[in-house]
Design a protein around this nucleic acid. Structure first.
Lengths: 339, 339
DNA sequence: CTGTTAGCGCCTTCAC
DNA sequence: GTGAAGGCGCTAACAG
């Protein structure tokens, strides 16, 4: 399968071959100053030949740093999380930090996760990517004793990088209002009891604000909550269509939800946007394909920014308490004036 | 931001409070035998109260194991990779192993990655998720001295969990042949020079085999290669449509490619399947929504299995050299007899 | 600039 | 069943 490693090369071996102490090797290889260019080069050459690299664990033990950061994501296999993960990765890697990936699935697993804190003693920082959190869980997280950064989630007291969810929602709903809709539904995602997922709550607030500003009374029947998935969106739309007076337009929590809803509309024989308009949030790659009007959020920038904040914190640099990224409406073919 | 940790609790602290030596604490907390039930319980209680956990790094340093495994994925932000990642995670976590996430983007980064091997000395095993590899890179990987597992990629000499790509392709193409198509195009993904990405090569082989079995001569014009993305699929379809005699059916490397191709068809004013049939591979969540005929592969099983193989290897258990997972045709509305 | 001396926090013989 | 000693591989003062 793979060759036996004849007992890995250590710093001592390099030191011996270079005719110096291991302190010097350590200094040379870790790029600290205080080593003559000559010896440094000699050491680097020898290390190269032996294909030796410093053991991060031993190094970390001595210097009290893991050079690792935990990325925690919720259950949904939504595109959003992988996009964020993939955009955090290069930033962290460039700073010599490794990513430990944790995914918490469901309420039970989440409780377990915060009870155990599997990342304890393993990382220098934690990034929570829109993970629903109860106050108790947050407090528990703090006991890890490392900086915590929120990505796509806004929680007071922690550095956050996010969009203005209410604004995003208003951009979507105002668009629908503008083209003439007055009966506008919203499809939300479920919020496990006691935990607050900012995005959903924020977008719902924006939805209600927009309606209120337009003088449209709130109708609870028009707000449906479902799982964050394509099927969730489809189910929600079915539910909305079964109302006595279905909405003429729908604002969906995300594009994936919206695309699920579009399927239900098509199956019900309804035309988009002639019969029902649909707006989502994200600007998912599939949004354009489905000609879906949406509110674009800069997902990759969100990840990159979150990564940068982690890097800065670990460098001791000051970071902004909250970085709000812009969103904007992308009008496509799924919205039009009501029939 | 977070409280200062008043110098983390160590094993010595627990030992002191328990009135035992740290050897005993070590034994008790690591579950080794040789400790009376009474003292073990006492120690566990104290550890709990102090919310103490063994430092994995220090422990690993002494016992020569990192309890970490690297998951390496290629650039594409395709759904496939996140699905695999998410299905590996619980298996590894259950075994007390952490995931280090690496994504190699583009040829330059890949070369750099294999030159540096950033995961060296950091993990007990590596899982490559359908990463294109040159023989030289493979050889380089071996110098890591840890087991390597291939997921979604079949390479001799390494434990692999994958599907039979030629078979999958034939399931798709035979379906098209069966309903009467004779002019069948294929949209492949690009293969950086010198690196072999099994899936693409395998599916292309299957495509050609199916045609050959049907006595249809190979037409190089009908084979197009593009980036692995929605846009790639769209571009490829445009190219196929620009032929003097466009195909009446298209076999796409993946559902995402296929969905991109469907967009081009729609934009060109062509009907699916009346004018052109389309088949993909994966059974992506969006496939059903787009009424796309596809060859389903058990992606989550693939991840889980790969995780299990890693766990078994690290336990010293024997593992099968290659686990082939089944695929099967899912017929939907995107395929029909030629016009 | 370089070497020496102590640990970092834990595991592992080896005695008792 | 438990403790003492030594070491895992490296870094961090402190000398010189």
């Amino acid at each position: 399968m793979h060759m036996e490693t004849p007992d890995a090369v250590n710093m001592a071996d390099v030191a011996r071959l270079a005719g110096v102490s291991s302190s010097t090797v350590s200094r040379a290889l870790s790029g600290s100053r205080g080593v003559s260019e000559a010896t440094r080069r000699r050491i680097e050459l020898i290390a190269q030949e032996l294909s030796y690299v410093i053991s991060p664990d031993a190094s970390g033990l001595a210097s009290r740093a893991t050079r690792r950061v935990a990325i925690v994501v919720p259950e949904t296999e939504s595109w959003f999380y992988y996009a964020v993960l993939c955009s955090i990765e290069p930033v962290l890697r460039a700073a010599g930090l490794d990513l430990l990936f944790y995914r918490v699935t469901g309420t039970a697993d989440r409780n377990e996760f915060f009870a155990q804190l599997p990342a304890r003693r393993k990382v220098d920082a934690v990034v929570l990517v829109a993970v629903p959190l109860s106050p108790a869980q947050l407090e528990r997280l703090d006991t890890m004793g490392v900086p915590i950064v929120m990505a796509g989630n806004r929680i007071d007291g922690y550095p956050c990088v996010c969009v203005d969810e209410p604004v995003a929602a208003r951009q979507a709903v105002n668009h629908l209002l503008r083209v003439g809709h007055t009966r506008i539904g919203m499809i939300r995602t479920v919020d496990p009891e006691g935990e607050s997922r900012q995005p959903d709550a924020g977008r719902e607030a924006g939805y209600q604000q927009a309606l209120a500003s337009a003088g449209i009374p709130f109708d609870a029947d028009l707000e449906v909550q479902v799982d964050f998935s394509l099927d969730g969106g489809a189910l929600a739309m079915d539910q909305l269509l079964s109302l006595d007076r279905p909405p003429t337009a729908v604002f969906a929590f995300s594009d994936e939800i919206a695309i699920g809803a579009m399927r239900s509309l098509r199956r019900a024989g309804l035309r988009i946007p002639a019969d029902v308009s649909v707006v989502g949030v994200d600007d998912h790659p599939m949004a354009e394909l489905n000609d879906l009007t949406t509110v674009r959020q800069p997902v990759h920038m969100l990840g990159a920014k979150a990564g940068q904040i982690v890097v800065d914190i670990l460098k001791g640099k000051p970071v902004p308490p909250v970085s709000v990224l812009p969103t904007h409406l992308v009008v496509r073919g799924s919205t039009a004036p009501p029939h």
